[in-house]
Amino acid sequence: MSDIESDQSANEELFGTATVVARTGLTAARIRMWEKRYGAVEPQRTETKRRLYTREDLQRLSLLRSLTDAGHAINRIAAHPLDRLRSLAAEEAEVVRRSQPTADSRVLVVSETGNALLGDDSSVDFEWSCPFATLQDALDSPAVPGADLLLIETDTLFEETLDSARLLAERTGARRTLIAYRFATRELEQSVRGDNPDVILLHGQRDAGRLRRECVFQLEALTGRSDMPDAGAIPERLFGSAQLAKLANISTAVDCECPRHLAELLKGLSAFESYSEACEDRNKDDALVHAYLHRTTAQARRSMEDALQHLLKAEGIELG
């Protein structure tokens, strides 16, 4: 150790770059960039130009890493005093704390079926209630309970259904709405899926297991606590089983078997999509995996359906 290092160490605890890297999780290159470009820290130097960081430098770098991970731009916060960085970090911690799903995460159900819609499953870590049979009942009520998620059951889906659902979401504070329905126009479905990321459409049979799985998936997605990547919404199917069966036996003008091959692939994807949707859920993590598999398979199925549509157009094939 040089004389300068000895004198400094006697008055203040100093840390080398390797120690700072280990304690903050930042790379040495990132630390140097923040120092040079933004003046985040001003390390001391030995006679051999080796950087030495104080305990306050270490704290600043740790806070800056946490805040940039949370979305703050380094160029906006690098020059903040330590107390301000601590205050921002405390605010971020409070946001995270409030967003964590707990056993008190609430799902408000609107359904004529009542609480039976979601069945009886004590393994899920959210609470639900169904005080209203219809959307109009909920909107007419002088007291509507708060909710993190809305689940609305309806036979038909119209524009006015969506308008009422939006009003109810505002009154309850719900951040996302699930609508389980049987009938709607293709135009309306496409409009909702394209323009309303906080409205999730669930078409078809209302199975309690499927609905519980969807509620778990959406609550986890809202808080970012799930390790599962966001696979997007579940697209509607463009080809029915009868159409795929017809394509499996069709011949084309150029003797191309691609329609048959694509039809077979789509039949397999559709079968696995239905299987993953219907899989038994033993716990919350199991439900999340099945919901993720359902979504990724549905997205793959849609990509293949789009490819098949282009092929049929190129081949001049009409299914009727």
Results as ranks from 00 to 15, higher is better:
R37S: 13
T185Q: 03
E264H: 10
L139R: 05
L117P: 10
H72K: 10
A116E: 11
Q299H: 05
E42V: 14
V199L: 12
N75A: 14
E277P: 00
Q44S: 10
H290T: 06
G194F: 00
L188F: 08
E214G: 04
V109W: 03
Q299I: 03
A169Y: 05
S9T: 08
E236M: 03
I77L: 07
T102N: 02
R50S: 12
S123E: 15
E280M: 09
E318F: 01
A233W: 11
A233P: 05
L319G: 00
S191Q: 14
H203M: 05
S141I: 03
L308T: 05
A208H: 14
T102F: 01
L139F: 04
T17H: 01
L265S: 08
L262W: 09
N283H: 10
R45D: 02
L168Q: 04
I179L: 15
G316I: 09
L157A: 04
E264K: 12
L238T: 02
L139W: 04
N11K: 14
G39M: 07
H294Q: 04
S122I: 11
M1Y: 09
L188D: 09
S303H: 03
E91V: 14
D255Y: 08
H310N: 12
N283E: 06
V110F: 08
R45E: 02
L167K: 13
Q8P: 00
A174G: 03
I317M: 01
P235D: 06
D227F: 11
Y275H: 13
F158N: 07
L26Q: 07
L61R: 04
Q100L: 13
G25D: 02
S141W: 03
N11D: 11
G204E: 10
R282F: 14
L219F: 10
R176V: 05
D7W: 07
E315C: 09
L269T: 00
E42L: 07
S129R: 06
S191L: 13
S87E: 13
A221F: 08
D69S: 05
R182A: 13
Q59V: 03
A147H: 05
H294C: 04
D207W: 03
S62Y: 04
Q44R: 14
